[in-house]
């Protein structure tokens, strides 16, 4: 039973991070109908930024909590700037182009960012500092669920709650929903659609940056290529939940994380990715609109 709970907890942790990244995919898709394949790279840049900031700050002997907060903030700001810029450079000029063009542009952007970090930083794996300590009060259950897992779960839950409040309650959030439901009409009520698209990219990138920081401190190492697999997994989660649906992305992330965790624990860790992507194939065959997605129908 302990083993089951352990797998369940690590699955939740994993799933929460997939969900955090998947939200970026699903929000961008909801607004402009584009799979932003460069999103995984934004996450990787978030991890690198927090790595650099955390390393520098720890040299100067900052307290751990300050390091975590500052590294997180830096990652959020820097990744958001990248997300914003990527949209302006690679997608906005293609707004009225055929649908395939921005998709290819996204793949190009992904390859570009990977190689840019490879050249600017290094191709080696870098050891990520331990930012989350082992809490003393977690001692009795430490063999089942680690402190990092708890921190990750709490952080992602808070991020998702903030997102929900923004989307449901604020004017910008309503404008985002309106734009994703009917872009022409959004223009006709005076919403500056370009600005809303930028805001969407910034929010998605900020969430990915937090994901980057969390997973890097969980796994303990990073390199320029980590965005690729994480991106594809999060994309799988978004499709699983129903792309374009925000609750779907969260559900999809958790289902994917748990599947992987149980597959690793009870079958073999070699099959982790096989199970993840089999799940994608099955969902595409049997429920292409995803768990919470709506089939695309239009009332005429």
């Amino acid at each position: 039973m302990d083993y089951f709970i352990e797998l369940f907890c690590s699955g939740l942790t994993r799933g929460a991070i997939y969900a955090l990244i998947a939200l970026g995919y699903t929000m961008v898709y909801g607004i402009i109908g584009l799979i932003n394949f460069a999103h995984g790279e934004i996450y990787m840049i978030g991890a690198f930024t927090s790595f650099i900031v955390a390393t520098v700050l720890s040299i100067y002997g900052f307290p751990l909590l300050a390091i975590v907060v500052l590294a997180g903030l830096a990652a959020v700001v820097w990744s958001s700037a990248y997300g914003y810029t990527v949209e302006k450079i690679a997608y906005k000029p293609l707004r009225h182009a055929p649908r395939l063009s921005p998709l290819i542009s996204a793949i190009g952007m992904s390859i570009f960012l990977q190689n840019y970090v490879l050249l600017a930083q290094t191709s080696d794996f870098l050891p990520f500092p331990t930012l989350i300590p082992e809490f003393a009060f977690m001692e009795p259950v430490a063999h089942i669920v680690g402190s990092t897992d708890i921190v990750i779960l709490i952080t992602t839950t808070i991020m998702m709650l903030i997102l929900t409040v923004v989307i449901k309650g604020t004017k910008v959030g309503k404008a985002m929903r309106a734009t994703s439901q009917d872009r022409t009409m959004a223009m006709l009520v005076g919403i500056n659609v370009n600005r809303i698209i930028s805001v969407t990219f910034i929010i998605g990138s900020a969430l990915a940056a937090v994901g980057g920081l969390l997973i890097a401190s969980h796994i303990g190492q990073i390199n320029f290529f980590i965005g690729f697999l994480a991106g594809i997994k999060a994309f799988t989660a978004a499709v699983l939940g129903g792309i374009g649906s925000i609750p779907g992305a969260v559900l999809g992330g958790l289902v994917l994380g748990l599947t992987e965790s149980f597959a690793t624990g009870y079958v073999s860790s070699d099959y982790e990715d096989v199970f993840a992507f089999s799940l994608l194939v099955f969902i595409l065959i049997f429920k292409p609109s995803g768990l919470l997605g709506k089939a695309e129908t239009k009332k005429v």
Binding site: A175, R177, A178, Q181, D182, T184, M185, A186, V189, K299
Partner: peptide
Amino acid sequence: HIFPQLTVKENLDMG
């Protein structure tokens, strides 16, 4: 062109 998944009140807010 009603926003289908916004409530009546939210549609008016968008106006």
